[in-house]
Design a protein around this nucleic acid. Structure first.
Length: 209
DNA sequence: TGCCAGGCCCTCTTTAGGGCCTT
């Protein structure tokens, strides 16, 4: 068990990304792949990647969008089995995702189906990037990776690759906070606060932190 | 078979509407 009273820093988190059958678990959509990277004190200490069989065919749009095919999912373990393992992986780490409200909905829905839970809190790399990279052309993950000069050679829209890229984006934003504001060990709570701060108040928040 | 979301954020705002972001 992590002692969250001792390690509440933003550089000790699990960064995760779901590929899914659609946009809304409330409308019956399911997860089809989970990818995640665990970092502790900024160093990668674990990775998780698994396809999962949602129990029905996925649309051609999702096959094209993700490169994940119905044939691949037919051979994959069931969502319940994968999510049980994933619940063990995230333990009580704090969690990060790009547009976290999306991934949180699917994590909550899939864990609810197997009567599992988690204690970590979410922070959203997209909302933080909107504050720290206000001049980016847009705040899609791929655009931000280019904007932050982060090398990328893989294929976006696969869960592990997107979680790897989100991890690099997250670390780059912690670097920005260190270089521009002298914040060396940003508390996770500060990143959550930053994500909700009006854009014209970002400098004031970080200068007093 | 066909259809579907939701939180954030800006503005021509708050008794609203629409774009952004995720699959």
């Amino acid at each position: 068990m992590l002692d969250r009273a001792i390690i509440p820093n933003a550089n000790t988190v699990v960064v995760l990304d779901f590929e899914t059958t659609g946009l809304s678990p409330d409308m019956g959509d399911r997860a089809i792949e989970i990818g995640a990277v665990r970092i502790e004190q900024g160093e990668i200490t674990g990775r998780f990647q698994a396809l999962m069989n949602p129990g029905r065919r996925i649309s051609s749009f999702i096959e094209d969008y993700t490169g994940i095919t119905n044939h691949m999912l037919k051979e994959a373990p069931l969502c319940a089995d994968v999510m049980c393992e994933f619940a063990d992986f995230i333990k009580d780490y704090n969690l990060v995702a790009h547009n976290a409200s999306f991934d949180k909905r699917f994590l909550d829905a899939e864990l609810h189906k197997i009567s599992r839970d988690y204690t970590g809190e979410f922070a959203c790399s997209m909302l933080v990037a909107r504050r720290l990279y206000q001049n980016a052309p847009d705040h899609k993950l791929g655009t931000l990776i280019k904007h932050a000069n982060i090398p990328s050679e893989g294929t976006f829209h696969r869960a592990l690759y997107d979680s790897e890229m989100t991890t690099k984006l997250w670390v780059s934003m912690l670097d920005v906070m260190q270089e521009q504001y002298g914040i060396t060990k940003a508390p996770f709570k500060l990143l959550q606060t930053l994500a909700k701060t009006p854009k014209n108040s970002v400098r004031r928040l970080l200068e007093r932190s």
